[in-house]
Structures are given as C-alpha cells and as structure tokens.
Amino acid sequence: MNDLKAIAVFCASSEGNDTKIISEAETLGKTLANENITLVYGAAKIGIMGKIAQASLDNHGKVIGVIPEFLKLKEVVHLGLTELITTDNMHERKLKMHELSDGFITLPGGFGTLEELFEIITWAQLGLHQKPIGLLNINGFYNDLISMLETMVAKGLLKMANFKLLIVEDDINRLLDKMRHYKRQPVPKWLKADRT
C-alpha cells in the first residue's frame, strides 16, 4: 500500500463556469487536510488553485506552494501558505513538485494542467518515477480525453500498460483508495540512469 503523505494537485488558475468543479476542488482540499495529506500545488490564490488551497488551509491542512518567480504576479501568489517555494523556471517548478509528492491528482483545467499531467505520466512511462497518478473526472470533464486515449490504444500508438498508469475516478475517496492500492510498475530494462 502506498503511503500518501503529500499529493501534488494540477489544476486551473481560473475558476471556469462549472460550480461542481469548484465545489469538488474545495472538497478535495478539505479531504486532504482531514486525512493529514500535504497539498503541493502551484501557489496561486486565484482560480481552482486558490479554492483547493484555501479549503485545505481552512481545515488545518499543510499546503506547500511552488511557483517560478516570473509567475508570482500573473498568478497572484497565495501568501498564507504553510510553505512557499520559488523556482527559477517552470521546469524547476515541476521537478520540485515531483520531489515533494507521493502521488499526483489532476483536476479540470486548461493547457497548463494538461501539460503537467502528460509530463508526469510520461515520466512514469519512462520509469523516472513509480508514483500513482490520478485523474479526477468531475462532471465528465475528461470523458473526451479518456476516449482519445482509448483511440490511441486501439490504433497501436499507446500501450495498454501505459494507459493504465492513469487512475481515473469521478469520486475523491475512491480515487484516493485506488492511489493507495496502486501497484508500482517495473522500470523498463532498457532505461539506464545515464540516459535520463
């Protein structure tokens, strides 16, 4: 069983127009706090990012924000976090979030959210980490994406084993349970430390 002491959450810096997404983000923040799981996220106080962070803080949770210097004004950094880490660039931000976390959850978002999800799942595919990766499919937000991934498998462009690296759920508690019981995949034999 995986010990999830800290989870990185990838989500939007805007709120969007679906109130269910906002309420589920807040519920996730509260759940992480109540289960004593540190939230690691992008440090903004606006959008879905701000909602999940504030919900965790309001329930006495530990929240670590990681943000590159150039985004501090654009994303309106949250100054009430447990810890704020500033990086030089986006790549360092993602490396730090990976380093601090035992697993990852992606909420609805835009290009940046998808980029974070696909980079972290590509790292898993390459054997650079063996941490569980969850996709919280609120209100069917990711149905079309999941269908696209299934098409990639059907066309022989994505291995089923790699598709299964992504844990998809529409319920927070079931998602966390599946992440805790996720079986780590073996690292590919062709992967050597000097090739990463």
Results as ranks from 00 to 15, higher is better:
L4Y: 03
A8W: 02
A8F: 09
F10W: 12
C11I: 02
S13T: 12
G16E: 13
T19C: 00
E26G: 14
N34W: 00
N36T: 01
I37F: 11
K45Q: 14
G47T: 05
G50E: 02
G50T: 03
G50P: 06
I52L: 12
Q54E: 15
Q54M: 08
Q54P: 02
G61W: 10
K62L: 04
P68E: 00
E69Y: 12
K74V: 14
E75N: 09
V77I: 15
L81G: 02
I85Q: 05
I85H: 04
T86C: 04
T87D: 00
T87V: 02
M90H: 12
L95H: 03
K96H: 03
M97W: 09
H98Q: 11
E99L: 10
S101E: 10
D102H: 11
I105D: 01
G109S: 11
F118M: 14
I120K: 08
I120D: 13
A124L: 01
Q125L: 09
L126T: 10
H129K: 10
G134H: 04
I138G: 02
Y142F: 15
L145N: 01
L145E: 01
M148S: 12
M148Y: 14
L149Q: 04
E150A: 05
K155D: 10
G156W: 00
L157K: 15
L157P: 06
N162S: 12
L166M: 11
V168Y: 03
L175I: 02
D177C: 01
H181K: 11
Y182V: 01
Y182W: 13
Y182L: 07
P188A: 11
L191R: 14
L191G: 00
